[in-house]
Amino acid sequence: MSIDIPWARAELAEFLKLTELYRPADPPGVVSFTTRLSNRGKDAEIHASAHVVEKILDRVLPRWRAEVPSARNRDVNRWCQHREAAQRADAALQRDAEIRERLGDDAPQLSAATMHPWVWSGARSLWQSGHFREAVTAAAKKVNAETQNKVGRRDTSETPLFQSAFSKDDPKPGQPRLRLMPNDGSDTFKSLQRGAAAFAEGCFAGIRNPNSHEDGLPELAENVALEQLAAFSVLARWVDTADLAT
């Protein structure tokens, strides 16, 4: 689902209004030399607004916690990092569509936040800190674990697990199957099951294993990692929507 830009920008504007910085007047007869600034809004209002704004920032600027400076402004006001991130996000929301149109790249945009929840929940914290390769590995582990949960198995994992789950054979004791469509004996049924098993093997053999087992690999480019997450999102959605045959 695409973001509601007018709503998001209104929430950012309200947060920026509440966290507007000012220097309180010194009490009579007192001269203060502190560099700290106060916010216009009440703490309770700011915290409530920040809860929503952080969700917006995670969606618009997934790496804002790592990319927007925080330490240098901590002594000035605790909300400085949030304010700068909110200003950047507002500019991105306001200008992104225009920029893509003007630069001739108005193609659909892929967001990790819209992928299957198993994938994004597994990858999110690592992704936001820029550990893209580890984020993909974490997503793969999450998909594997949720598949084990669905078929009730702990005796196998990864490629053997999916080969068994998507097998065209009838279920056996301790070996339930995942059906992407009813088993009507058709070529379509056989194709779907064979394709899902092969796709799962490709995800784990070609993506998960190299990411996990090769030392010294350079960090994945963000767009490459996003493509790999998308592959596991497809697999996760198949597993999640499949009927369990026991």
Rank of each mutant, 00 (worst) to 15 (best):
A196W: 00
L192G: 10
R65I: 00
R100Q: 10
P28V: 12
L178Q: 10
A225I: 03
A97G: 09
M1V: 15
S49V: 03
R177I: 06
P182N: 10
S186Q: 08
I56A: 05
S186K: 13
P160W: 14
T188F: 04
A113Y: 14
F199K: 04
A25D: 13
W64I: 02
A225E: 06
S49A: 15
G41W: 03
A140N: 08
T19N: 02
S129P: 01
F232G: 01
S164G: 13
R88L: 15
L226K: 13
A197W: 12
Q175F: 10
R102W: 09
A13I: 12
G41P: 01
S2C: 00
G130C: 04
L110T: 15
L21M: 11
V31E: 14
D105T: 09
A66W: 02
L226M: 15
W127I: 01
I56D: 03
G202T: 11
E98H: 13
D243R: 14
W120P: 03
R23I: 07
P173Y: 13
L12H: 06
A97F: 09
Q94T: 15
H116K: 05
D106K: 11
P182D: 10
S212Y: 07
G29N: 11
F199L: 15
S186N: 12
R36S: 15
E14V: 02
M1W: 04
A50L: 11
K172G: 04
P210S: 12
A86S: 15
A91F: 10
P24G: 08
E158M: 14
A197H: 13
T34P: 00
Q128A: 07
A145I: 01
P28G: 05
R59T: 06
L229K: 05
R63F: 08
D187Y: 05
A107K: 12
V143Q: 03
L229P: 02
E14H: 13
A10K: 14
F132C: 01
E134K: 10
P108R: 09
T246L: 07
V119C: 10
E84T: 06
A200V: 11
R65T: 04
K55H: 12
P182M: 10
F15M: 09
P171L: 04
N77F: 12
P218Y: 08
V68E: 00
A91M: 13
G152L: 02
C203D: 07
L192H: 09
N149H: 06
A86L: 04
W79Q: 07
A71K: 07
R74P: 00
V31Y: 10
Q193L: 03
V53Q: 00
F232I: 14
R40K: 13
